[in-house]
Structure formats: C-alpha cells, structure tokens
Design a protein around this nucleic acid. Structure first.
Length: 179
DNA sequence: CGGACGATCCCCT
DNA sequence: GGGGATCGTCCGC
C-alpha cells in the first residue's frame, strides 16, 4: 500500500512553537520527537484518532512533520477496507484518515521510516517547481494557529487529496453522558 | 453542499 | 479533571 503525500504541517519544539506537542518539553508522550530524525511519532487525539508525524532534527531537538493528506497510489483495495469503503479521494485525505489507510496505530510510534525493511518506509519524490502552496496550520488553537507567525502548512496546490482548511474551534464543555 | 455537533480516551496538570 | 494537530453524520438550504 503506497501513499503519495500531498499535504503536511511542520511543528517545532524547543519552546518556540506553542502549537507543538513538544512545546513544554519532553514527556512520555512526545519522547520520540526528541529522538533521531526519520522515525515515526504517533499520537492519539479526540478520543478516537491516531495521527502520524515524521521526526526531524538530530537527537535532543524536537520537531516533527504531521502527515495531513495523501493520494493512495497503490494497494487501493486494502486502503478501502481499512477506511470502511470511503471514496478513493477520501482514503487518506486528513491526518487520521491517512494513518488509518496506512494501518498506523499508536503502537507503531518510534518505527524507523528510513529502514528499507521496516513496516513503513518513507521515500523522497520529485515535486515540480512552484507546485507547493503554504498556509496556516489546521485546527491549531492559540498562538500556534496564527498564520502570521506559523504559516507552516505545505501542500500541492490544487490537489484534490489536500484536506480542507479548518480554523481551530474553541471546545465547549459538554454535559456528561447520561442514559 | 456546508455548517453544527457528538463521539471518546490518552496524557499532562 | 479536562483539553485536544479529527471525523462522520445529521440536518437545513
């Protein structure tokens, strides 16, 4: 199963990026981001979704690239099964969808994406000059969502598998579930 | 087609 | 104790 990445967002740690999980320093959850580059950083969010990042920068420095969208270019049957029959365009359109399509779970965190024999392998691809658009990061609350300072979303301009931009929505407290 | 909203749980505080 | 780098469904237009 192969996905051609069409959309990513970058997150820096080191206390300079309030949108990063590593902003407040190393914890058990984000420890992988402080490790060597090229490894997989996974996190669980919104009670049901797993998202995947590629770790950047040398050991000790935390940064990651969130894989936000892609086009399934091989193994469409398996991806469709994992995504419970979603239309082809939506198989990996969105970070949680992309992780689901690839079969990435929390337990895969730390995997070496540069190991050719690994379960998940990252490969470079050529991109035409000028094809990459930029914009504010999606769904990031607080100062980290400020496009003036953090225009760190990168995508193939006009590609249909780029996820729609959504601004962060302040979460309202929900009443406890009752029955 | 698009806005609103509920689901659901790991991890930091 | 509660927020969160989301998604699918529902409903109105």
């Amino acid at each position: 199963m192969t996905v051609r990445l069409t959309e990513v967002e970058t997150y820096s740690g080191q206390g300079v990026d309030p949108g990063s999980h590593a902003h407040r320093g190393r914890t058990a959850r984000n420890a992988v981001m402080f490790g060597p580059a090229g490894h997989l950083y996974t996190y669980f969010t919104y009670g049901m979704h797993t998202c995947a990042n590629v770790v950047c920068l040398p050991e000790g420095l935390a940064a990651g690239i969130l894989l936000r969208g892609g086009e399934v270019v091989a193994g469409q049957d398996l991806a469709t099964e994992r995504r419970k029959g979603a239309p082809a365009r939506d198989l990996a359109r969105g970070p949680a969808r992309l992780a689901t399509a690839l079969g990435i779970t929390l337990a895969d965190g730390g995997a070496d994406l540069l190991d050719p024999g690994g379960a998940f392998v990252l490969e470079p691809a050529a991109v035409p000059p000028g094809a990459i658009g930029t914009g504010p990061r999606t769904g990031v609350s607080g100062a980290g969502g400020d496009p003036e300072h953090y225009p760190w979303r990168f995508f193939l301009d006009g590609d249909p598998t780029v996820s729609p931009y959504r601004a962060a929505v302040p979460r309202i407290r929900r009443a406890p579930h009752r029955r």
